[in-house]
Amino acid sequence: NQASVVANQLIPINTALTLVMMRSEVVTPVGIPAEDIPRLVSMQVSRAVPLGTTLMPDMVKGYA
């Protein structure tokens, strides 16, 4: 089972991601792979992401 990136806190719209905002977790459906966490740092979210939400490619500007 592949771990995905999950929000560790509420991430407001247009916030630049930092390591403390993200954790890896095995979830369904699968989201952005956990190994991409270093690449996500400083990228902005395109919408508010609630705590515990799996990050999907369309939620991060410039990821897809």
Score class of each variant (00 low, 15 high):
T15H: 06
V49R: 03
P38E: 10
I13E: 14
Q44L: 11
T18Q: 08
L10A: 12
N14G: 11
L55M: 13
P29T: 07
M59L: 06
A64Q: 14
V41K: 04
G31Q: 02
P12R: 08
D58R: 07
S24R: 05
G52R: 04
N14V: 03
T53N: 12
S46R: 10
Y63T: 04
V6A: 03
L55C: 02
D58I: 12
G52D: 07
T28G: 06
L51K: 15
N1G: 15
T53C: 08
T15G: 05
D58G: 09
V5Q: 00
I13H: 13
R47G: 07
P38N: 13
L40R: 00
T28I: 05
I13W: 08
M22I: 11
P50A: 14
T53E: 12
S46D: 13
K61N: 11
S42N: 08
V41N: 04
D36R: 07
D36G: 06
G62K: 08
V5C: 05
T54G: 03
V27D: 02
V5E: 01
L17R: 00
M21P: 02
V30P: 12
R39S: 10
R23T: 13
M22G: 01
S42Y: 10
V27N: 03
V41F: 06
V5G: 00
D58H: 06
R23I: 11
V5H: 00
N8G: 13
V30G: 07
M21W: 02
G31H: 01
A3V: 06
S24C: 05
N8E: 09
P33A: 13
V27L: 06
N14F: 07
Q44D: 04
A64Y: 04
T28R: 03
L55W: 00
V41W: 04
V30I: 15
T53F: 10
S42T: 10
V49L: 10
G62N: 09
G62M: 07
L40G: 00
M56H: 10
L17A: 00
V60Y: 00
L10D: 14
L55V: 12
N8C: 05
Q9P: 01
R23Y: 09
N8L: 05
P33Q: 08
T53S: 10
V60P: 00
V41H: 05
L40P: 00
D58K: 07
Q9K: 09
R47N: 15
N1L: 15
G62C: 11
S46P: 03
K61V: 14
D58Y: 09
R47I: 15
T54R: 03
P57R: 09
M56W: 08
P29L: 07
R47V: 14
P38H: 11
T53Q: 14
T18H: 06
R39T: 08
A34R: 04
V6F: 01
V27Q: 11
I32T: 00
M43R: 09
P38S: 11
Q9F: 10
T15D: 04
S24M: 12
A7D: 02
M22Y: 01
L17H: 00
P57Q: 08
N8S: 15
S4E: 00
T18D: 08
L55K: 00
T54N: 02
A64H: 15
Q2Y: 14
A16V: 09
V20Q: 07
M22T: 02
M59D: 15
I37A: 09
M59S: 09
L19R: 11
L19F: 14
S4M: 02
L19M: 11
T54A: 06
K61E: 09
T28M: 08
G52N: 11
L55T: 01
P50D: 15
P33T: 12
T15N: 04
V6T: 08
M22A: 02
A48D: 14
V26K: 04
I11G: 01
M22K: 00
A3Y: 15
N1E: 15
G62L: 06
P57C: 13
R39M: 12
V41Y: 04
E25R: 04
A3L: 14
I37Y: 03
Q44T: 14
E25D: 14
T18Y: 03
V49Q: 02
V60K: 01
V45E: 01
P50Q: 14
L51S: 15
A48S: 13
V6C: 04
K61D: 12
N8V: 12
V20D: 14
V41G: 02
T18S: 09
A3P: 06
G31F: 02
T15V: 10
V26I: 08
V41R: 05
T28L: 05
N1K: 04
A64G: 14
K61F: 06
T15R: 05
I11Q: 01
S46F: 08
